Simulated assay, not measured.
Amino acid sequence: MANLTIKDIARISGCSVSTISRVINDRPDVRPETKEHVLKVMREAGFVPNTNARQLKIQQSRSLVFVVKGTRNIFFSDFLVQLQRAATLYGYNGIVSYLDENANEIDAAEKILREIKPKGIIFLGGSVANFQRGFDSINVPSVLTTLVTDELNFPNLSMVGVDDRAAAYTAVDYLIRQGHRKIAVLGGPVTSYPSVMRRKGAQEAMEDAGILFNDKLYGLSNYDFESAYHAMNSLLARRADFTALFAMSDVIAFGAIRALVSAGFRVPEDVSVIGFDGITMSRYCVPVMTTIVQPSEQIALQSIELLVRQIEHGSPAQTVTLQPELQQGESVRAI
């Protein structure tokens, strides 16, 4: 039997996909008789996971490439695990390619297509301008995930994510409803589409509440701890007057909180902080982060499903916008 997947082995053996996965990974939480049965089925079917020969075959016939823009973005790290899990369920192997935040993801994808020849590509983050200039050269089914825009329209490019503008509006509106009027914002540059949309959403929430958006309270930061730490220190050095902070990612929020605490401020007693993404760490940090939670598992599964439909059935590209949720933690107080 050719091109068998763990789903095939699950069907033949009468076991679940998760059980097959545990047997392959030699997990201890499988009954010995079940493990022996699965291994027997695998031997008889000629299924050999994780060998060099199989890997080479996968690269030619069942591979997907995940192009990750931002090597230090923890949200993408968590998200990749969910993407890999979803790809495996559909019988595909995910190959990860990491890029710097300022790299051109389309140039990287063109090189990957020449070297690996994957069945499809999922872009984690990206520049709308880069896609507008160069995506015509990408001839395989693709999904731009965690970013949704009406500025891109390609027959082989689906998009899955949240409405960044509306989500940021929700975050800042929440701060305003807690009584805050002096709100600082930390986020990315104009080359980052999500940052631009989140800034617009924040600005609209302030304007609807009769608050003037103050450019002096906007700090530029990449999506990593160190950059956020320095961005907050720059705001503090300018003696910026604010009672709350909207950070465009949880990672930015963590870096900013470290700078605030180092400068003698308490969160939320002196400065309230709301983040964005809802990464796992946000629920276990001190204080527990108030944040906008992206439905990352749903985004990952939807991205893989759309890509597989394009690959296997020639389905048209789609744009799917999912709803985030406000996670109320301990980092925001009413004043």
Rank of each mutant, 00 (worst) to 15 (best):
R114I: 13
Q55D: 08
V196P: 03
S77L: 09
N156E: 03
A10V: 09
R27Q: 15
V251C: 01
I106N: 00
E110A: 13
V148W: 02
S249Y: 01
V48P: 00
L217P: 10
M232F: 04
D173M: 08
I9Y: 00
G278F: 03
L301M: 08
L326I: 13
P295A: 11
K119L: 05
V38T: 06
D78L: 06
R199W: 15
Q298V: 13
L99Y: 08
S142D: 05
V81W: 11
E115K: 12
G134I: 03
A300H: 04
A53R: 11
T88L: 15
L152G: 07
M197D: 07
I106T: 07
L56M: 15
T243Q: 01
I138D: 06
R31G: 12
L301V: 13
M232P: 10
T51I: 07
R114Q: 15
N3M: 14
I9N: 04
T5P: 08
R238S: 15
I20S: 08
S158N: 06
E330M: 10
Y98G: 03
I176D: 09
V67R: 00
C285G: 00
P295D: 09
K57F: 14
Y229M: 09
P32M: 02
K182Q: 14
V320H: 04
I20G: 07
E325R: 14
R27P: 00
G201L: 04
G255Y: 06
F123Q: 02
A209T: 12
S127F: 08
A231S: 15
Q327D: 10
A109S: 14
S13M: 11
E269S: 06
Y223R: 04
V286P: 00
G134S: 10
P268Y: 08
D26P: 09
S13C: 09
Y92Q: 01
A10L: 08
H180F: 06
N222T: 10
S227V: 07
A209H: 13
I138A: 10
D136F: 04
S127M: 08
F213P: 09
L235T: 06
G188M: 04
E105N: 10
L80Y: 07
I299S: 02
S13V: 09
P141C: 12
G188H: 05
D270I: 06
Y169A: 07
S97K: 14
L113A: 04
K119G: 04
V67M: 02
V267L: 08
P287S: 05
L212Q: 14
E36Y: 05
E226V: 12
H313P: 00
S249Q: 09
L326G: 02
E44R: 13
K182G: 11
T280G: 11
I257G: 01
V308G: 01
S221I: 05
G314L: 10
V332C: 14
V190M: 12
A108I: 04
F135L: 13
I183S: 01
L307S: 08
A109M: 07
P155A: 06
L245M: 03
P324A: 12
I292S: 05
P324D: 11
Q310D: 06
S142K: 00
Q203G: 01
P316W: 06
M289D: 03
V68M: 11
E330F: 05
S13L: 07
Q298N: 12
T51Y: 06
I311M: 10
R199M: 14
A129Y: 05
G329Y: 05
R22N: 14
S158R: 03
T321K: 12
G126Q: 09
N156C: 03
G187W: 03
V273F: 09
